[in-house]
């Protein structure tokens, strides 16, 4: 671990992430490194494994912290810059942490024609964030996504795995409230013990 920590300190340009956003190595579960090694051992090959591997990592962590990208680059014999080039090219990969609830508003044509633009505005107003950002309490991330293919239910909003169909801007407040309450219930259940804030998969 210390070795990785050092590498991370020397290679990341200091103002790259904004100092306060530099992920703390302690935040990355220790099993991540083994999981990467195991996956690579099970899938022999060259750099064409990069995108599938990034998928695997993002599925585990919900995002792609820089130290992990660096580790991946090292294992695939690539430079971190190359890996970052790939990560930043594809919308699916993210280098910032998501909120507990990821609100995805479909902006496919069918949803757009039926007023998805007003729905996403309503969410932005309700949460007080711009599209793509996470609320300060870390509860909600607001994103627009490309067609999720449920055009029959347009406009569609997906919150984590829950699909809301025929969403009207007026329903937005209720949807947010519902998940806020869900989070409250979780916190209560977990007690004030702390440490569970970022439980499992987002």
């Amino acid at each position: 671990m210390s070795e990785r920590g050092e590498a991370h300190a020397t290679i990341v340009p200091p103002d790259y992430w904004g100092a306060e956003e530099l992920p703390d190595l302690a935040e990355i579960p220790a099993q991540t490194w083994e999981a990467i090694d195991r996956w690579l051992a099970e899938h022999p090959g060259g750099r064409e494994r990069l995108i599938p591997l990034l998928h695997v990592v993002q599925r585990r962590l919900g995002w792609l912290p820089f130290p992990v990208l660096e580790y991946v680059a090292d294992r695939l014999g690539m430079s971190p810059v190359e890996v970052h080039g790939v990560v930043s090219f594809y919308h699916f990969f993210r280098t910032d942490k998501k909120g507990r609830f990821n609100i995805k508003v479909c902006m496919g044509t069918a949803c757009y024609v039926r007023g998805a633009g007003r729905v996403i505005e309503a969410f932005a107003d309700e949460l007080g964030v711009e599209v793509g950002d996470t609320t300060e309490d870390g509860l909600f991330t607001l994103e627009e996504v490309r067609c999720v293919g449920a055009c029959g239910l347009a406009p569609v909003v997906v919150v984590n795995d829950h699909v809301y169909g025929n969403v009207d801007p007026r329903r937005v407040r209720r949807i947010v409230k519902r998940h806020r309450r869900e989070a409250e219930v979780e916190t209560e259940a977990a007690g004030d013990g702390g440490g569970t804030a970022e439980g499992g998969k987002g």
Partner: peptide, 8 residues
């Protein structure tokens, strides 16, 4: 099977 990563 290769999964894309969201680039039109």
């Amino acid at each position: 099977i290769m999964e894309g990563a969201g680039a039109f």
